[in-house]
Every structure is written in structure tokens, then in C-alpha cells.
């Protein structure tokens, strides 16, 4: 009898598993292209996570990647990225990247955002702060891959309290 009670009571704790398998990650590629004299940035973010972050900042639901997508969606996304993703080049202050556009992933769950920074001088050092969604989810992880001059590669993972990487060439 007591096992029956135990068995039935486990149905009541089952809803604790509600959040099962939600994972909070984003990835970002920062690539220096000497031949184009620019820094190219592509960033992959889950749409539902991004919308949650924007809503917590008072933005109405944007329906990103659907037919109902708000006209000003890109502007809100760009503004958000500017606030939480910052790049400093050669120690001379934060540079706002030019937002080129976005693309919905094949499985419709995430977007790729494309940005660019003109680089008239060769890249010497780079400081990247990637705190995308870190304030929204305590288990958020952002992986940033940096490809510098001569194809030198560095990667880092941002978590709360540790979201900056500095590279010199």
C-alpha cells in the first residue's frame, strides 16, 4: 500500500521536470578579413530566448521569423545586440558594428545575425564581450570563435561573470 502511495505521489513531482531539456546557448563567429579590410561577425541566437530577453526589456512580442514579424524587429534586435555584445579594436574604445541583416535557420528555431566593422588598419588586438542572454538565463552559455590575422584562432565561452576575451596579434 505504501508503495502505491509513493508511486502515485511521484506523479505530483513529475511536473518539476517541466524545464527538461531547455538549453540556453548561442554562438558567434568573429572573423577578420584582411582582403576585405573588415571584421565580419555572425551570431546564432535561439528565437524564443531572444524574444524573452526583449520582452523583459519592455519590447512587445516581435514574432521573429514568422509572417507576423514586426516591421521594426531588426531595429530592436540590433539595439539589443549593441547593448550586450561589445567589441573593442586596438584598445581604442567600443565600436558599434554595422548590422547587415538576419536570416532564420533551416529549422526555424534560431536566427543568424550578420554584422560588419570596417578595418582600414590591420587588426592588432581585439577585446570581445559577449553577454548575449546572460541576464535572462542563469545557465546561458555563449561560445565565441575569433579568427584573427593569418587565420589565428581563439575560442571562449561566456557565462555569467566571465564574458570577456582579449586577443593580441
Amino acid at each position: 500500500m505504501k508503495y502505491l502511495i509513493l508511486f502515485i505521489s511521484s506523479f505530483f513531482i513529475a511536473p518539476l521536470a517541466e524545464e527538461a531539456h531547455e538549453f540556453h546557448v548561442s554562438k558567434c563567429l568573429v572573423e577578420y578579413k584582411a582582403e576585405n579590410a573588415e571584421l565580419q561577425i555572425s551570431m546564432n541566437i535561439f528565437i524564443d530566448d531572444l524574444e524573452l530577453a526583449l520582452e523583459s526589456r519592455g519590447v512587445q512580442k516581435l514574432f521573429i521569423g514568422t509572417e507576423k514579424e514586426q516591421e521594426d524587429a531588426n531595429a530592436f534586435i540590433e539595439k539589443y545586440i549593441d547593448q550586450v555584445f561589445q567589441i573593442e579594436i586596438d584598445g581604442s574604445g567600443i565600436v558599434d558594428p554595422i548590422f547587415l541583416g538576419k536570416e532564420v535557420s533551416d529549422d526555424l528555431t534560431s536566427i543568424w545575425c550578420y554584422m560588419q566593422i570596417p578595418m582600414p588598419q590591420p587588426l592588432q588586438s581585439l577585446k570581445v564581450k559577449n553577454s548575449i542572454l546572460l541576464e535572462t538565463f542563469d545557465d546561458q552559455k555563449n561560445i565565441t570563435s575569433i579568427v584573427g590575422p593569418e587565420n589565428k584562432k581563439d575560442s571562449f565561452m561566456s557565462i555569467r561573470g566571465d564574458d570577456v576575451k582579449e586577443v593580441s596579434y
Partner: peptide, 14 residues
Amino acid sequence: FTLSGLAFAVSLYL
């Protein structure tokens, strides 16, 4: 039986 019952209940919920 307890462990299996727990796994049964939670997986059914999922």
C-alpha cells in the same frame, strides 16, 4: 520498484 516507479511517472509526464 521505487526508482522504477519514479522514472515511469516522470517519463509519462514528459
